[in-house]
Simulated scan of single mutants.
Amino acid sequence: MSWFIKKRQQKTAVEERTVRVPEGLWVKCDACRELIYRAELANTRNVCPKCGYHFRIGVAERLESVMDPGYEERFGELQSGDPLAFSAAKPYADQLRKLKGLGHDHDAVLVVEGTLKGHPVVMGVMDWDFLAASMGSVVGEKLRLGAELALAKGCAFIIVSCSGGARMQEGALSLMQMAKVSAALARLDSAGLPYLSILTDPTTGGVSASYAMLGDLNIAEPKALIGFAGPRVIEQTIKQTLPEGFQRSEFLQSHGMVDKVVPRDRLRDFVATALDWMTEPHG
Rank of each mutant, 00 (worst) to 15 (best):
S2R: 07
R8P: 11
Q9I: 14
Q10K: 10
R20W: 03
C29E: 04
C29L: 10
A31Y: 09
A31N: 12
R33A: 10
R33C: 04
L35Y: 06
I36C: 00
Y37I: 05
L41S: 01
N43D: 13
R45C: 02
C51K: 13
C51I: 12
Y53G: 01
V59I: 11
E61P: 09
R62P: 00
P69A: 13
P69Y: 11
E73W: 14
E77Y: 13
A93I: 11
L99Q: 09
G101S: 07
G101I: 06
G103A: 01
H104C: 12
H106E: 15
V111M: 00
V122Y: 00
M126C: 08
C162Q: 15
G165S: 13
R167C: 09
R167D: 12
R167W: 11
Q169Y: 08
L175W: 08
Q177G: 10
K180F: 10
S190C: 02
Y195Q: 04
P202G: 08
S208Y: 10
N218V: 15
N218E: 10
E221N: 00
E221S: 07
P222W: 05
G227R: 03
T237A: 10
G245H: 01
Q253H: 03
H255Y: 09
H255N: 03
M257G: 15
V261C: 01
L267N: 07
F270Y: 13
T279D: 11
E280R: 14
